[in-house]
Design a protein around this nucleic acid. Structure first.
Length: 314
DNA sequence: CCTCACACCTGGGTGC
DNA sequence: TGCACCCAGGTGTGAG
């Protein structure tokens, strides 16, 4: 559920408190939350002990914190993915966490003092890991590090296959359109494919498709270039709008992506709106099963495309 | 190579 | 009240 806007809210909230802070303690309460940590890198707790956090970077839904170099290793970062239900919470030491606490970092910032960074995750789809940083293929900054900071052109190895997100200045539109034109699948599946474009999840996919008046099964390779451009514009609009709404109501010192507060539900036009009238035409919106998840759409504005002609069999 | 179904998880909700 | 069941969906994997 946390998609690009929610993860960015977490990144921007953590950034001032963790950048420059030293990690002086690590507690792992559930090893399952380390499923993305490769033992080849070394022991998770030992790798973090004594390192200084150099920043907070995001690409799509992936978040990482570059670490000061240790003598034994090349550049590394602490990687976090929130999965479905993950939260990274900045807490005053001693705070009793109500949710399912999986990992706790003890950090000390030269100006702001001591904090706990609590990784809470009900469903354990999220995780933390220490990963090595590798150069980006295009040489551009690896992700978004805040308006005042430029990310290095180094990306965690496990994030290297993730496409840039559509708000990244280095997002390659030409490559994206070309990739879309090669996809023999429905447009929603393509939007959710993080190797094509990252940061979009079920909620904002439905919102962008509604705005672009596209059915989720519209073949990606049969989208005209203008319609593909229009869709990308709607994706950006939806993400930026959510970002603007989420970025304001919130104390930068204390990060809380707690459930509903992060989901801007008041401004949704499609997701979860089944039964309500379409904001454009008044037709009741419907919810359908697609890809084992809910898809919300207007049956009038978003017509199912006619079936692809069956390929002749030799 | 590509596409797609499925496993991974558990609190909260529903129906009996 | 209790309990079995179902649902939410991001990502990695492996089948075909």
């Amino acid at each position: 559920m946390p998609e690009l806007p929610e993860v960015e809210v977490v990144r921007s909230g953590l950034d001032p408190a963790v950048t420059g802070a030293a990690i002086h303690g690590v507690e792992v309460f559930d090893r399952r939350s380390l499923k993305r940590h490769s033992p080849v890198e070394g022991d998770f707790e030992r790798l973090l002990q004594g390192r200084t956090v150099l920043g907070a970077v995001r690409r799509g839904k992936f978040l990482w914190f570059p670490l000061s170099e240790s003598p034994q290793s090349g550049p590394q970062a602490l990687v976090a993915h929130l999965g479905m239900s993950g939260q990274v919470l900045l807490r005053t030491p001693g705070f009793e966490e109500a949710g399912l606490l999986r990992i706790r970092l003890h950090i000390e910032h030269p100006q702001h003092g001591e904090f706990w960074v609590n990784f809470v995750d009900q469903r354990i789809f999220g995780s933390m890991a220490v990963d090595r940083l590798v150069p980006t293929l295009d040489g551009a900054p690896a992700g978004f590090a805040g308006t005042a900071r430029t990310a290095a052109a180094l990306v965690p190895s496990q994030v290297a296959h993730i496409a840039r997100d559509p708000l990244d200045p280095a997002f390659d539109e030409r490559a994206f359109f070309a990739a879309l034109a090669r996809k023999r699948t429905g447009i929603k599946r393509a939007l959710l494919d993080q190797t094509l474009v990252s940061g979009i999840g079920n909620i904002y996919a439905d919102e962008a498709l509604w705005a672009a008046r596209l059915h989720y099964e519209h073949p990606a390779d049969r989208l005209s270039r203008p319609r593909a451009r229009g869709l990308l514009a709607e994706v950006r609009l939806v993400l930026e709008k959510a970002l603007a709404e989420g970025g304001t109501s919130f104390d930068a010192q204390y990060v809380n992506v707690n459930g509903a507060s992060g989901y801007f539900s008041h401004s949704l036009n499609a997701y979860g709106q089944q039964g309500k009238p379409c904001a454009r035409c008044g037709t009741p919106l419907v919810r359908e099963q697609f890809m084992n998840r809910g898809s919300h759409l207007c049956p009038h504005c978003q017509r199912r495309p006619r079936a692809r002609p069956v390929a002749p069999v030799e």
